[in-house]
């Protein structure tokens, strides 16, 4: 065996170990778009909350009245973000001749779904019991935990996004009344920053 051959062998081993255990079709652009959807969604909710409100009136009742509209907006943002993410990952995987559905992507999904489903149920319970103020921090914190859980099976940069989301969530929990602002910061601004970094680092 020649030295060159051995080097090739070692390089191929290293790349296989990396590719087999990590989901690397995640697109940076999807992160940026998810952030933009979140900012638009936050804008809509802000508009719903403050449009034509006389603050001497009962604001709590108003919040209950617009709650369905807020939930629909949030769900629309969520579904659009997931759809964009799946579509762009699919395209990126196709360009590299890889499949999006492999052992690593299953791991990513499983590790994300446990905290996400738990957080989702907790949010429903909070809604049901009228703890509206805690929804924003709960969604940020559990989303951050989901990202950290998934980060072992994809780009390790995802871990830092997760930590930032958790931090934002905890700060939000300390500052009642600013939920929407921090929610926009976490899901909007952080996603845009993260997506841009990923795009510059891996996609070009």
């Amino acid at each position: 065996m020649k030295e060159k051959e051995i080097q090739d062998e070692l390089t191929s081993i290293r790349s296989l170990m990396e590719r087999s255990s990590k989901f690397i079709s995640l697109s940076g652009l999807a992160g940026v778009l998810a952030g933009i959807y979140a900012l638009i969604g936050a804008g809509i909710v802000f508009y719903l909350m403050h449009w034509g409100i006389d603050y001497s009136n009962v604001p709590f009742l108003h919040l209950v009245n617009i709650l369905p509209a807020i939930i629909i907006t949030a769900l629309a943002v969520l579904i659009l973000s997931i759809a964009t993410g799946v579509y762009l990952s699919y395209k990126k995987a196709g360009r590299r001749g890889q499949s999006i559905w492999g052992s690593a992507s299953k791991q990513v999904l499983f590790n994300m779904s446990v905290p996400l489903v738990t957080g989702g149920f907790l949010m429903l319970i909070c809604l049901h019991r009228g703890y509206f103020g805690i929804i924003a921090p709960v969604s940020l914190i559990f989303y951050g935990l989901a990202l950290i859980g998934a980060s072992n099976f994809t780009f390790s940069d995802v871990k830092y996004l997760g930590l930032c989301q958790i931090l934002t969530g905890l700060i939000t929990a300390m500052l009642p009344g600013y939920g929407l602002v921090f929610w926009a910061l976490g899901f909007g601004v952080l996603h845009i920053i993260y997506g841009s970094v990923m795009y510059l680092k891996y996609d070009r």
């Binding site: 191929s12 081993i13 296989l16 170990m17 990396e18 590719r19 087999s20 255990s21 499949s99 492999g102 052992s103």
Partner: peptide
């Protein structure tokens, strides 16, 4: 190499990867 990096791997994923 794949089985060193992953606890377990299924046949179809291996086939696709390699």
């Amino acid at each position: 190499s794949v089985l060193m990096a992953n606890q377990r791997y299924d046949f179809n994923s291996l086939k696709e990867l390699l």
